[in-house]
C-alpha cells in the first residue's frame, strides 16, 4: 500500500495485536476499518461513533487542506473532526475502508496527550490515545 500523501511505501506497525499502516516519510497513519473494529472489540466497546454512516453524517470540516484519496479505493475522502480536547482533523473514506491521520496532526495530539489524562473522555478519544501511545516517538 502506498501513502496517500507522499506516495511512499507504508510500513505496518503492530502493537497489542492491532496493525496500523504508517508512512515513515511523512509520519501519516492509516487506520483500516477492520483493525479499528478489532481495537474497539478488544477495548470492549461497540462500534458506535465509528460506523461509516455515523462518520459520513458528520459535517465536512472547513479547512484548506488538500483532499486525500483513500489508499484502498482511491476515491476522495471526507475531512472530519473527531474527539474533544484534543480535536483531530482526519480523512474518512466514503466507502468505509478506514481513517487517515496526517503526520503533523498526530504529532499535535501526542503533545496534547502528554498534558492530559490518557484514555479519558469518549470512545473517539480512546482510539486517538491508542494511536498516540503507538506512535509516541513518531516525530
Amino acid at each position: 500500500m502506498d501513502c496517500p500523501v507522499c506516495k511512499g511505501p507504508m510500513v505496518i506497525v503492530e502493537r497489542s495485536g492491532i496493525e496500523v499502516d504508517y508512512s515513515p516519510d511523512c509520519k501519516g497513519v492509516w487506520f483500516d476499518s477492520g483493525e479499528l473494529e478489532l481495537l474497539l472489540e478488544s477495548m470492549e466497546l461497540d462500534e458506535t461513533g465509528f460506523t461509516t454512516d455515523e462518520l459520513m453524517a458528520l459535517d465536512e470540516a472547513r479547512t484548506n487542506e488538500k483532499k486525500r484519496r483513500c489508499p484502498i479505493c482511491r476515491t476522495k475522502m471526507k475531512k472530519l473532526i473527531i474527539g474533544k480536547t484534543p480535536e483531530v482533523l482526519i480523512d474518512a473514506c466514503h466507502k468505509g475502508h478506514g481513517l487517515w491521520f496526517d503526520g503533523g496532526e498526530l504529532g499535535q495530539v501526542i503533545r496534547q496527550l502528554l498534558d492530559t489524562e490518557p484514555a479519558s473522555g469518549g470512545k473517539q478519544n480512546r482510539v486517538i490515545s491508542f494511536l498516540g501511545e503507538v506512535f509516541k516517538a513518531s516525530d
Binding site: V11, R15, E133, F135, K136
Partner: peptide
C-alpha cells in the same frame, strides 16, 4: 520495545526508526 514492524519490499532504506520507542 515489543512493536512489530513489517517493511514492504519497495522500502528503500536499510534501517527504520521505531515510531513507538524511537
Amino acid at each position: 520495545c515489543g512493536t512489530k514492524l513489517r517493511v514492504p519490499p519497495n522500502y528503500r532504506h536499510s534501517n527504520i526508526k521505531c515510531p513507538h520507542c524511537g
